[in-house]
Design a protein around this nucleic acid. Structure first.
Lengths: 221, 221, 221, 221
DNA sequence: GATGAATGAGTGTTCATTCAT
DNA sequence: AATGAATGAACACTCATTCAT
């Protein structure tokens, strides 16, 4: 119980290697077992099937990440709503929000997220870039969806809309893009930086880019 | 040449359908042939192998796209360099560039690119989202690389650097990201819009986002 | 087209042997191919899957048999009904039926059935005794069901019932048994006789047994 | 001995369920153990192998049944032989036998057999309809063989033969069939009736059928 | 008594590709 | 230009069974 079983551990290591090199679909169960020095039967003692094996590598980290995001954004929603209420009547100006809290919090929490991504760097590499063919292949879209609700509220507030019903088709499209891009920033950091230190040193620019982008959109036309 | 061989045409149509539905790896040669109503042997008369078949669908459009990008950016490079020289000494301000030419051109040419992407929408859908497992799986990265040189010069100019040698690691990193993101904008438009008209109506915001992002980065710290 | 493809023929022969020796479930596709001197891929060119291979051996004969039975019993139904009408009022006596047509026809047609069973002896051996695990495993029950309707009418007539509604639970049970047993007679002949000649020489007793059984039941109590 | 080991009992229950649902071959040892909440190793402590497990379910009942049949028919043999001797010279008439003892005893003892079959209904269901692939798959034939000797003597007596040597090939064939059918009657009752009461209410017709069949055969030609 | 781990041989099936005709 | 046939290697997965602890 204390030290995870030798064989299972070996299997997981070799699976990580195989999935990383070849991606989910091209990865071969037989290869993983050969590398681990056991028969395929042994693998199937520990894991239900290929999907389960992959899930053992990425499932845990993913769940924790989702919790992190959920927590992050429920806090922020509260913050944004606070601003909205205080300055109601005149409409929230960009300056209000930025000065107040919005992106400052974002940057702070982004650091937490990136830190966690790097704690499980290998797993997230797998999950985000090698999961095609597995049940996780749409995981990025799902995370984007999670974020989108939050960003919709933020956008409504910044535009000075009174309700979500004022959103045009164009508004919705750009919100989706910006949500998507926010996630891509994380993905980019975790796949292009060696370690969390390096990632943190790039984050300032990344956030500046994103915030600049938001300003550009909000003030457009 | 005029009426492309019936069989080859049918085969290409069915291959397009199969690759689109299942992606390169999961697509089955046998299925394509069955759908086209010929034997696998027939397919191998026209195409060397699976890779070649895929290449016949996406290769042409890709080459033309690359040419488009090459032309676009070589022109722009000239333009940017012009600005740089004229205002040398004081450093180029963002206003200079924007007012002058940089992003105005960008927006103009982006429209051309997007228009072309939609002319061959199916092919680019395939190429950009269904090519995993084929030799084209890194095509996005390659296009990014193409764009990166151009953006590096632009960045150097905007930062007021005298040469590329002044670029820090952080500079290079954010340039890579912004290049990447520019391509992602195209990719996003082609995969999320039904037709070129819809794409064009979203482009204003997209470019505003990107330009805003650049401003944010250039003025950071 | 004229002479069935060598390989397919060989494959069918070897499949027949393997299925006969081991039954459907224990039969090994690989064994069949090895015996036939081809790779498993070759088999899957000719047959969709194991079930299809088995179906190619027993499906045709089965369909013809079902047709034979359908024809047989629709004729007989007419005959029985004729008798019923002629002697209506007094109730049909056993003698009437036997003297008239009922079992004489049965015996005659039984010969036709048995003759056909022997024409495809191997296939029916497979179908009736080696199909467990395949979709044909309940084939005997289905044939029994087919026969049962016919025998129900015959039974009603012989008992002098005015309608099927007079049948008791006990009646229904014994009708099912006698239907079942009729089929078992065929099955027994085809599995215990070397050839049709031998089977025919046993049929007289078999039919005598069955007819005697019917008399026993009808006159019971 | 009193309270059979909990685990073994559980294992036997689950095995009964699994074998009943899937038949011997498709039944999975792993499934049985999973259902019983133990590991496969535990099963192999109590049972040598799959065959042994199956044997533990059906072996006991089978032995008792065989004893029952042996006893039944050795008694009867004596009775039949008595009749033969008494009426020697004229040949035994069917009426003699029936009136005397033969089938009356049969019916009486058949009730005993059926009663026992129902006492161990589950086991006999398994044995008679789900044993394909196990060493018990030919158990019906073996029981038939047991019965056949007895019926041979009975047949000899009824035909008025002086010895078994007078039996023709046809005689032997129909004797085998009638022995087989007798067993099938039991099998049918145990697989088609819910309980012994229902079975007993059907037995009258079943025996009438069989006896009628015998008469038909004996008087044939 | 029972576990957890592992074996080794096997399953049916699919694949891209080849090639004589 | 295309067919029909065949290859050979690979696939994920399941099986009954064993055994040290």
């Amino acid at each position: 119980m204390e030290n995870e079983k030798e064989t299972k551990k070996k299997l997981l290591e070799c699976a990580m290697k195989e999935f990383s090199e070849k991606g989910y679909m091209k990865a071969s169960i037989r290869n993983i077992c050969k590398e681990a020095g056991v028969t395929t039967g042994a693998l199937y003692f520990f894991f239900k099937d290929k999907e389960d094996l992959f899930g053992n590598l990425v499932g845990g980290p993913l769940m924790k990440l989702e919790k992190l995001i959920d927590d992050h954004f429920s806090e922020e929603i509260v913050a944004t709503q606070k601003v909205t209420k205080e300055s109601s009547g005149k409409g929230v100006t960009v300056a209000d929000l930025a000065a107040a809290q919005g992106f400052e919090d974002d940057t702070e929490i982004a650091k937490v997220v990136v830190k966690y991504l790097f704690q499980e760097k290998e797993a997230f590499d797998l999950l985000l870039t090698k999961s095609q063919g597995s049940i996780y292949e749409t995981v990025v879209d799902k995370i984007v969806d999670k974020v989108e609700d939050h960003y919709t509220m933020m956008y409504v507030a910044m535009k000075g809309y009174k309700s979500k019903r004022e959103l045009t088709k164009e508004d919705k499209f750009i919100i989706h893009w910006m949500s998507h891009d926010q996630i891509d920033i994380f993905l980019h950091l975790v796949t292009h930086c060696k370690n969390v230190k390096e990632a943190e040193s790039q984050m300032s620019n990344m956030m500046a880019y994103m915030i600049g982008g938001w300003f550009g959109v909000i003030n457009n036309k």
